[in-house]
Nucleic acid binder design. Structure first.
Lengths: 232, 232
DNA sequence: CGATTGCCGACTGTCGACAGTTTGTCCGGG
DNA sequence: CCCGGACAAACTGTCGACAGTCGGCAATCG
C-alpha cells in the first residue's frame, strides 16, 4: 500500500527531460526508426524534440551504457550496428546469465515463483495470439526477467536488463513472421517442468535448448532480412 | 597488439574532459577519498577541477552506469554504498561470469593463452611482493580479465569490466594487511592447472573455490573495518 | 514546549552561445 | 579523368547563466 503510494508519487515527479529523451530514443531505435549505424545529430534531435542539447547528450550517454548507441570522440553518437559476431556474443552472455539463474532456481524455486512464471507464459501466449510482434517480444523478455529476478540477485538482474536492451536491438534486425502460440507455450513449459523437477542437469539442458532456439531464430531472421534488403 | 595501439591513441587524443573527470573521480572513489554514501556537489567538483558542470554531469552519468555512483533525481549524485547483500550479489555475478569463461576455456584454451596467464601470475606476485595493495589488486583483476578476454566474447568482457569497478569499490571498504605472494601464486596456479587439464568439472571446482576465497576475504575484511570504525 | 509553516540558501535541471574540430565540397593541377 | 588542397558549413565540446526545486532553520501557533 505504502509502496503503491510511493510509486504513484514517483510517477508524478518525473519531469526529467533526460529520462523522457532516453525513452523516446530507445523506442525510436527499437522500432527501427533509425537505421543501424546511423549518425545522430545532437542539434537535430534537440530541435525535433524541442529541448536543449544537454539532456540529449546525457540521454545519449545513458543509451551508450546500455549498448544502444556508440560514441566516437568529436564525431558524435551512432546507433549500434550489430554484426554476426556480436550477435553470437550477446546470446552467449544471455546463456551465461540464464544458466546461472536456472541452476540457482533448480534447488530453490518456490511454488509461488513457479505459479507466477506459469501465469506469465499464459500472458505471453495471449500476446502471441494477439498478433503484435512487439508485445510478444516484451512478454517473452518479461518471462525471462521474472525468472532471473526470482534468484534475488539485483546485480544479476541489472546485467540481464542491460542485455535485454541489446536483445531488443537484435530483434529490430529481423523481419519475421508470426510465431505459433502453442509452440511458444511448449517451449517455455519445458523450462518450467525442468525447474519443477529440481534436477540441475535437466534445467541446464532446457535453458541451453531454449536459448539456442532463440539464437537460431534471430540469426536466421537476420540472414533473411539481409538477403532481402541486399544492403552491403 | 592492435588493441594496445588503439588504447594508446585514445590516451593521446583525449582532450576529452569527460573522460579525464571520470578517471579522476573513479580514482578518488577507489582510493576512498570520498566516504560511501557521500553526496557529490556538482559545483564543488567543477570548481575544484577547474571545469564547467556539463563534463562533471556526463562523467557522473558514466560512473553511475558503472555502479560507482547512484543518482537521486533533483538531489544529485552519491558515491555508492554497498551493503552485505549487494556484496554477495556482486561476487555471485562474478562467479557466474568466470564459471562461464572457465567452462569455455576448458576445451578451448590455447598454449599461448596459458603462457600469458602464467606470466600474469608472475607479474601479480611481483606486485604483491612490492607491498602495494593497489597494484596487487589491479594485477589480480588483470589476470581474471585476461582469462575472460581469452574467451573472445566482447560482451562478456564488458560485463566483467563493469563488475570490476564494483569489485574495486568493495575493496575500498576493507582495511587489509599484506597478503603472502606464495599463497597468491598457489591460488592462481590452481586455476591454470585446472585449465590445462581440460576437465570441466575440475575447472568449475577451481573457480568456485577461488572466488569463494576472494569473497570471504572481502566480507571478513568488511566486517573488521566496520567493527573498527563503529559506524552505523 | 512541541509541531507546523514560511523563508532562505544551495543545488540541480536546462538553456543558449562560443570555440575548435571534423566533414563535405569545390577548385586547380597533373 | 583522377587526385590533392583549401574553403565553408555543420557539428561537437565546453562554458556561464537562469529558473525551479529541495533541505534546513527560524518564527509562529496551539
Amino acid at each position: 500500500m505504502s509502496e503503491s503510494q510511493s510509486e504513484e508519487f514517483k510517477a508524478i515527479r518525473s519531469p526529467n527531460l533526460v529520462d523522457q529523451v532516453a525513452d523516446h530514443l530507445t523506442e525510436a531505435i527499437i522500432v527501427g526508426r533509425f537505421t543501424p549505424g546511423e549518425r545522430l545529430s545532437e542539434v537535430g534531435l534537440a530541435r525535433s524534440l524541442g529541448v536543449s542539447r544537454a539532456p540529449i547528450r546525457e540521454a545519449a550517454r545513458l543509451l551508450e551504457s546500455r549498448g544502444l548507441l556508440v560514441s566516437q570522440p568529436r564525431r558524435g553518437f551512432f546507433v549500434r550496428a550489430l554484426d554476426a559476431g556480436e550477435l553470437e556474443d550477446i546470446f552467449d552472455l544471455r546463456l551465461c546469465l540464464e544458466r546461472h539463474a536456472m541452476e540457482h532456481l533448480a534447488h530453490a524455486c518456490s511454488a509461488e515463483t513457479l505459479l507466477a512464471l506459469h501465469r506469465q507464459v499464459e500472458v505471453l501466449c495471449r500476446a502471441a495470439a494477439s498478433g503484435s510482434e512487439n508485445r510478444r517480444i516484451e512478454e517473452d523478455l518479461a518471462f525471462h526477467r521474472m525468472m532471473i529476478a526470482a534468484v534475488g540477485n539485483r546485480r544479476l538482474l541489472k546485467g540481464f536488463d542491460d542485455l535485454a536492451h541489446e536483445l531488443r536491438l537484435c530483434i529490430t534486425l529481423i523481419t519475421k513472421t508470426h510465431e505459433d502460440p502453442d509452440t511458444i507455450a511448449d517451449c517455455h513449459h519445458l523450462l518450467l517442468d525442468a525447474l519443477a523437477s529440481g534436477e540441475p542437469a535437466r534445467c541446464r539442458e532446457a535453458i541451453d535448448y531454449h536459448i539456442g532456439v532463440a539464437r537460431d531464430y534471430v540469426v536466421s531472421g537476420v540472414g533473411e532480412s539481409r538477403q532481402k534488403s541486399l544492403a552491403y
